[in-house]
Amino acid sequence: MSLLLSLNNIHSYYGHIHALKGISVDVHKGEIVTLIGSNGAGKSTTLRTISGMMHPKEGSIILNGKDISKMEPHDIVLAGLGHVPEGRGIFPKLTVKENLEMGAFTVNDQKVIEERMEYGFSLFPRLKERVGQYGGTLSGGEQQMLAIARGLMLNPDILMLDEPSMGLAPVLVELIFDIIETLNKKGTTILLVEQNALMALSIAHRGYVLQTGEIVVSDSAANLKQNTMVQKAYLGMD
């Protein structure tokens, strides 16, 4: 499998806070890779560093063979990376349709935009019923659907999802995870950040465990599920 995204020895800071202390992550084409870890471990920081919302002090990030570590988010998006941020980032005063159009801001072909929007609606029929509604008035689950559908509007090579299950009822979590698997089967590579480690490991091929800014274990998802440390700390088993 060819390497799609690779982080090499990344250090990121918030002011003086050393949030990522030299992490390395590889994602191959076609994989679902999950990043698990407890609150404040640095999962979101990792995604933010990849998508250019913050820049690493050290290390390189290679996407499709190109170093993107110094690029700005709007350019990284064009290089094939989609990021559904923590908290979903729905524009509250734009309608569902406008939110989706925003996702395809860099696309000029109206036909392509409409096709992709229809694709989003086919994944989440609920969104179609709500096209004219303001993003801010959607339920949490609907917002997550919208965020994912919007993240697909540029047809990214790799889609990064930051805690898509947060705050959702179990049925919806199932639905979202099903869709992530479907997307992956259709060819989208996924980098999934989750606190719900069991769910994440059940659909992922491989996983990394992050602890206070460092990667402590990385293995296949199946092996991680059997790892006693992971079981204790993240799967709630004794």
Binding site: S51, G52, M53, E72, P73, H74, V77, L78, H83, P85, G89, I90, F91, P92, K93, L94, M102, G103, F105, T106, R150, L154
Partner: peptide, 15 residues
């Protein structure tokens, strides 16, 4: 309007 509502997310839209 997107930048006014949510600057970081707007940048993720390629703006």
């Amino acid at each position: 309007r997107a930048v006014a509502q949510d600057r970081p997310t707007a940048s993720l839209m390629g703006i």
